[in-house]
Amino acid sequence: MMDKRQLGSSSLEIVPLIFGGNVFGWTLDQDASFGILDAFKDLGFNAIDTANNYSHWVPGNKGGESETIIGNWLQERGGRDGVVLMTKVGGRFGYDSKPNVKGDYIKEEVENSLKRLRTDYIDLYQTHYDDETTPVEETLRAYEDLIKEGKVRFIGASNISPERLVESLDTSAEKGLPSYVSLQPEYNLFDRAKFEHLYEKITFEKQIAVIPYYSLASGFLTGKYTSEADFGQSARGAGIKEKYWNDRGRRIVAVLNEVANAYSVSASAVALAWLLAQRTVAAPIASATKRHHMDAFVEAVNLRLDVASLAKLELASS
């Protein structure tokens, strides 16, 4: 059995790798999703992250498909108490629409999420995209009502400015309102600057658990892209190449593979273990579409990188 970590100041305890549910209803249909969820749980993991708008970008989808699949799986398999269920509100159902975290909207959307997830409560309910026209107190008071009603246990934030995050935390403290216990930012070995310069100090000082998304940089940090030809083997290869395939990206991948070989693990495991070694990171979020992809998850939570390996990765990604 793998060790668990407490999620920030909450009472939630998770094995420190969270499954990213954006693939459900997108690259995985319901049957395939059930198989992946079964395998994830059988390996000993217990935390799943999704959102009310996943997977709205798929033609024919309306949003909520990921939650529906997870809910159907929970209904069929049982064991809800053994799963730490995380979802988000305020997401954009269309890329041209604005996020919304007004109190009434949150209360309306939580009912939709609970219905799709086929559960009475959400363990971690997160502000997905902050709506800066809504006062933070209005958002927090809506969350307060949901916590009092037993529909939500704890709250977190995702795409929020550092200023609004601090304002939210200060408002919670001043007015005795629920406080964000987690932050879900984009953070990985390649994409470091924004989090480390703008958020890392806040999360450390306020004891906010960091649960990074894009932990493997859309697959770039799996180590499978080592030459120009490799990008033609993936449907997402062109986009990954454009964003990541530069001198710095090549240097990161080379060192990732070097460290992976030294430990006899996958490059994915090293990239995830590097995140787990950061002082504010509670658990990275990662997805899988095949059972064997999750071998790296197990390797990562059991891997303790030594000082020399961490230094190599720091230097390569600086």
Rank of each mutant, 00 (worst) to 15 (best):
V101M: 07
E108T: 13
T87H: 07
V89C: 13
E76N: 05
V83T: 11
M86H: 03
K115M: 08
D120Y: 01
D81M: 08
G94F: 10
N100D: 15
R118W: 03
G79A: 08
V136Q: 06
E65A: 05
T119V: 00
P135A: 10
G64I: 14
I70H: 07
Q126H: 14
E132I: 04
R92H: 12
G94V: 07
D120G: 13
E137G: 10
D120F: 02
Q126V: 15
K88A: 13
V110K: 07
V136L: 03
D131Y: 10
D131K: 11
Y105R: 03
L124P: 01
S66P: 12
T133H: 02
D81S: 15
R80K: 14
S97W: 10
Q126E: 15
Q75Y: 09
E67F: 04
Y129E: 04
K107A: 06
Y105F: 14
Y121S: 15
D131C: 11
E67R: 08
K107I: 12
H128G: 10
N72D: 13
E108L: 07
D120S: 13
D81Q: 15
Y95T: 10
G103Y: 00
F93I: 06
V110E: 03
L124F: 01
E65M: 11
E137F: 05
L117M: 06
D123R: 08
T133I: 00
G78L: 11
W73Y: 13
I122E: 02
S113D: 04
N100A: 13
V110T: 11
S66D: 10
S113C: 15
S97C: 09
L114H: 03
K107E: 10
S66M: 11
G90W: 06
F93Y: 12
G103P: 00
